[in-house]
Each structure stands twice: as structure tokens, then as C-alpha cells.
């Protein structure tokens, strides 16, 4: 599993029409990510971080170039195939948590497993395991409106990892959290990366996140400006 090539993009270009002109959000981005990486795309707003995650996450198609994720060519996927890829192999963590408001924490975490038709008993065990990883087993009956920002993001992490996806994409996961909660969820993600071997790819400009990364890719105006390995400065040894 380790060192296995998980993501490969070649000359990836994404152009958005903007009125009469167009914005080149990704400009010939070629990157490889291997299984087990804890990597981050950093850069200012508009640098193309989220666009890259969206393409890799099969939520968007590239304008040109290619993106191969878990052996699947993103640009050739139908809507159904893309949905299947996301369902089985990719977890998402969003800046705004994006929990389903009518579901409890338990049900939010359970949701991807329902889509995968995991049997009930196994599902229950997996959900409770995921909630325990993020330290929220005792809040399983709470609805999103009853959870704090930090707790909501931890539920979102549990939802993303419950199906044990090989790849987890996190878009500004700490942007709506205070420092303490940010460190808490980052430690959680680092532990999941270490213990489950889940590959994490972040889009962030938060220094707190960068402090946890093993690899930092700096994007500027849709181009890779720098791709450097890092020695994590914080929390890698600390479990959730």
C-alpha cells in the first residue's frame, strides 16, 4: 500500500469562464501523490487549491490534461462512475462541515455506509469506531445544530473516514475553528493517517495545518511554485 501511486496529474488545466474573459484556475499542474501521504496544497485565495481538490475528488472535470485517481481517469468518468468513485474511495472534509442537518451525528457518519449497503451490524460497529476515533461517541445522538464547530468538524471527519477510504480530501478544514479545536482535529487526522494509512490531501493557508504536513505544495496563480517535503512541527506523535 505504502508508496503506491494514488494520484497523478499531468498538465492539468482548469479554466472557468468569467463573463467575457476566463480564469485559468489550474495551469498545467503535474503532481504525484503516494498512498499514506499527509500533504497540503497551500497558497493564497484563488491560487487553485480547491479547484485541484475538486478535480481530484471527481467533483469537477479538467479542461485539459489528465488526472488519474486510484487508477481511474477522472476526465473520462461518467456522472455515475464519478459518484461511485467518491462513494467508495474518497472522503471529503469541508470548511463548513456540511453535515446533513436533519440527521444525528450517528446518522451523518452512517450515511456513506448506507450508500455502500454495508450490513446493519457491521455498519453500527464502524460508525461507533469512527465516532470513538474522533472522541464523540457520547454525542452520537446530537444533531448538528446541537454541536459546536469543533464537534461538527470531528463528526465530518468521522463521516469521511468511516468507510476507510484510501484518500481523504480536506478543504480548509480548520478555517471555521479556533486554535484549540483546530489542533484537536489535526491531531485526529494525523492519527488516522498514521494508524489507518489514509492519504490526506489538504487545501489550506492555515499555518496550524501546515505545521502538521509532511509535504507542502505551494500553488500560485494555478501553477505549482514549490513542492517540498516537511518535517512536521507539531502533533504527529499525539493521538486524538
Amino acid at each position: 500500500m505504502a508508496d503506491e501511486l494514488l494520484i497523478r496529474t499531468e498538465e492539468l488545466v482548469k479554466v472557468f469562464p468569467m463573463g467575457r474573459s476566463e480564469v485559468r484556475a489550474l495551469n498545467r499542474v503535474s503532481l504525484d501523490f503516494r498512498a499514506g501521504e499527509f500533504a497540503g496544497l497551500v497558497g493564497p485565495s484563488g491560487s487553485g487549491k480547491t479547484t485541484f481538490l475538486n478535480v481530484v475528488g471527481s467533483l469537477d472535470a479538467p479542461t485539459s490534461g489528465s488526472a488519474e485517481v486510484l487508477g481511474r481517469r477522472i476526465e473520462g468518468l461518467s456522472h455515475r462512475e464519478a459518484a461511485d468513485l467518491r462513494n467508495r474511495s474518497i472522503g471529503f472534509i469541508f470548511q463548513t462541515f456540511n453535515l446533513l442537518p436533519v440527521y444525528t451525528a450517528y446518522e451523518n457518519v452512517e450515511f456513506p455506509l448506507l450508500l455502500l449497503r454495508v450490513p446493519a451490524a457491521q455498519r453500527r460497529r464502524m460508525v461507533m469506531d469512527a465516532l470513538e476515533w474522533v472522541g464523540l461517541a457520547d454525542r452520537s445522538r446530537s444533531r448538528p445544530a446541537q454541536l459546536s464547530g469543533g464537534e461538527s468538524q470531528r463528526v465530518a471527519i468521522a463521516r469521511a473516514v468511516v468507510k476507510r477510504p484510501p484518500l481523504l480530501l480536506a478543504d480548509e478544514p480548520t478555517a471555521n475553528l479556533d486554535a484549540e479545536n483546530s489542533h484537536h482535529i489535526l491531531r485526529t487526522m494525523a492519527a488516522l493517517n498514521r494508524e489507518l494509512g489514509t492519504t490526506f490531501l489538504f487545501a489550506t493557508h492555515d499555518e496550524k495545518v501546515i505545521a502538521y504536513l509532511h509535504r507542502k505544495i505551494t500553488l500560485v496563480d494555478g501553477r505549482v511554485e514549490r513542492d517540498e517535503p516537511l518535517t512536521p512541527a507539531a502533533g504527529r506523535e499525539t493521538g486524538p
Binding site: 459518484a83 461511485d84 456540511n98 446533513l100 463521516r159
Partner: peptide
Amino acid sequence: RREIGTLVALGFTRGQ
């Protein structure tokens, strides 16, 4: 809309 996006990200097809 955000919820729709989330469902799609979680693996719902547009048809679903």
C-alpha cells in the same frame, strides 16, 4: 444547495 453538493460529494448521483 450546499446540502445537494454534500450529497453528491458523499456519492449520490445527480439522479439520486
